[in-house]
């Protein structure tokens, strides 16, 4: 390929013109290209970051108490993210994953009000451990059995149980999408149109006021890592939760966490 054979064109009788072979050596070219490729591989990134959009309420003090949207105790679930700490004489040192060096987070949750209807504190500010309704959970991915069915575990199972009404409708919509009720899924354009229709319907279901759905309050202790927060926000998306908020941790929450740990040992 790199050689060009030059023949003299004539019938070869006139004089003896030599057949010339022009050869271009491409080795330096390949060397240079390899260097360039190496440069591009090291100095560039192909991964585009994904984003997670969140909206928080304003910091302004709400003047009118009536305007505040109060979650009813029946619907509320509070999830608390805390960093796992080393037990023993030096409390406060965080447990670090031995494999990837990440801070290990723990997930706790309680339904309704802290301490149930009677509250966490007895007369004189005594902590009533019997009223502590804090429970521990875990962040786990779905368990997939041999048939390929997904089974939620950990905190996801708890959220899904509370959000059953919405999830059932969403799953019905998903089935309709697969059956082609939102339009054919043959070409890319068709598929996108069908997905748009499906997303519209799904967001209607998520926002439907008549369907019973939980309100999730996400709290995190100062030591817990950012990853824990993103993981929980992910769970909201996975489980089609439309009402959730990130809130400041309160003293009662910290008392409950403390009390829970004391009685675990």
């Amino acid at each position: 390929m790199a050689e060009v054979q030059q023949s003299s064109g004539g019938d070869g009788k006139k004089g003896h013109q030599k057949k010339m072979t022009i050869r271009v050596d491409f080795t330096p070219m390949v060397d240079m290209n390899m260097l360039l490729i190496t440069f591009f591989m090291l100095c560039t990134t192909m991964i585009k970051s994904q984003t997670l959009t969140i909206a928080l309420p304003t910091n302004e003090k709400v003047q009118n108490e009536e305007n505040m949207s109060q979650a009813s105790a029946d619907d509320a679930i509070t999830i608390i993210i805390d960093a796992k700490k080393k037990p023993g004489p030096t409390p406060g040192t965080l447990v670090v994953d031995s494999v990837n060096g990440n801070v290990v987070n723990e997930i706790y949750y309680y339904d309704g009000k802290p301490g149930g209807d009677t509250g966490m504190f007895g007369p004189g500010g005594v902590v009533l451990s019997a009223n502590n309704n804090l429970k521990k959970s875990e962040l786990l991915s779905d368990e997939v059995n041999s048939v390929g069915d997904h089974k939620a575990r950990g905190i996801r199972e708890i959220i899904q149980a509370r959000n059953k009404a919405v999830l059932e409708k969403i799953n019905a919509l998903k089935k309709q999408l697969e059956e082609g009720k939102f339009g054919s899924l043959e070409t890319k354009a068709d598929r996108e149109a069908a997905m748009a229709k499906y997303n519209e319907e799904a967001s209607k279901v998520r926002k439907d006021e008549n369907v019973k759905k939980p309100v999730i309050i996400i709290k995190s202790t100062p030591e817990a890592s950012y990853r824990g927060l993103v993981d929980i926000l992910d769970e909201m998306q996975i489980n089609s939760i439309s009402k959730y908020q990130i809130d400041n941790i309160t003293d009662v929450d910290l008392v409950m966490l403390d009390d829970y740990r004391k009685h675990q040992k």
Binding site: I81, N102, V103, P222, A224, S225, R227
Partner: peptide, 11 residues
């Protein structure tokens, strides 16, 4: 932010 940044800072 880094995944191991404490919630305190993010907050």
């Amino acid at each position: 932010a880094d995944q191991n940044t404490s919630f305190d800072i993010i907050h």
